[in-house]
Design a protein around this nucleic acid. Structure first.
Length: 280
DNA sequence: TGCCAGGCTTCAC
DNA sequence: GTGAAGCATGGC
């Protein structure tokens, strides 16, 4: 067991933030996360966060995964004081962090995400893992890895259709073949500039602007990537008169995007008079 | 029961 | 380059 005191960290919010789909609540207020071939059980009591793993595993993997070396406290200071909506979003989402997820898993998960809601995405991803991922076991029982590109590449389209992928099944199969063949090398993409990385991701069938930006942000930690889905689009129209000022927020626009997304979907925002930002 | 969901591809124009 | 149609399925 490894215990850390962490500021600006909310397990509960991160798990519900829609950036990862395999972080699920367990009994006794803890969460299990399957990522990078392992299962981690985490619980939180205020700033005290308990990771059920060795200190070596925590320092070697999870500290980086949860982006714990980054300071999120300065975000509020960067927000335009006149931008009441953003101020509220930052307050509401305090504790959110941008995870550093596996590029392959992130790519497939967000290809699947198109025109699905978050519970449906999680269900489809979990179905894929249970059918085609390696089965492992630890003291908590069995769990399943996210299936490898080689494994998916060897499947029939019908196998994937059984995971409720619908019309996305052909995209998942195509992407898997592309990665398995090395035509898209997810490791070497890391060294590309953000623009080149973006263009490379767009070469994958089934990846457009939004999914490419999600992969850039949630796997390659390109914090200027700004995915625009229906929720963000709605907020841009409602609160920003059609355009979010990304140029003002270089180095954190993508992080702000995640707070906006989280707040936009909340009951708190749903129940307040809108817009929060007064348009002149 | 109908509407909506962390959109993309294809095809007019 | 822009805009609209078509797409599978489950959650609410």
């Amino acid at each position: 067991m490894t215990e850390e005191r962490i500021d600006n960290f909310s397990l509960h919010k991160i798990a519900r933030s829609g950036q990862c789909f395999r972080m699920t609540p367990m009994e006794s207020d803890s969460y299990q996360l399957v990522a990078h071939g392992r299962r981690l059980v985490v619980s939180q009591d205020g700033p005290a966060v308990r990771f059920d793993c060795s200190r070596e595993e925590f320092d070697g993997l999870w500290r980086h995964y949860f982006d714990l070396d980054a300071d999120y406290s300065h975000l509020t200071g960067r927000a335009d004081p006149r931008d009441r909506f953003l101020q509220e979003a930052l307050r509401y989402g305090q504790g959110l962090r941008i995870l550093r997820q596996d590029p392959w898993e992130t790519m497939i998960s967000f290809i699947i995400s198109q025109r699905k809601n978050i519970p449906a995405i999680a269900a489809a991803v979990e179905a894929m893992c249970r059918r085609f991922g390696d089965r492992k076991a630890d003291k908590y029982g069995e769990f399943y890895d996210f299936p490898t590109a080689a494994r998916i590449a060897g499947l029939d389209i019908g196998d994937l259709l059984e995971c409720s992928l619908g019309y996305r099944a052909k995209y998942v199969l195509s992407a898997a073949k592309r990665v398995a063949q090395g035509k898209t090398d997810l490791i070497s993409l890391e060294s590309l500039s953000s623009e080149d990385l973006y263009q490379s991701l767009l070469e994958v069938d089934g990846i457009g602007a939004k999914v490419a930006n999600c992969v850039m942000l949630f796997a390659y930690h390109r914090v200027d990537a700004f995915p625009i889905d229906v929720w963000i689009e709605r907020m841009i129209n409602t609160e920003y008169e059609g355009r979010f000022p990304c140029e003002r927020y270089q180095g954190c626009a993508g992080i702000l995007q995640q707070y906006i997304f989280f707040y936009a979907r909340s009951e708190t925002y749903k129940n307040c008079p809108k817009p929060l930002n007064q348009h002149s």
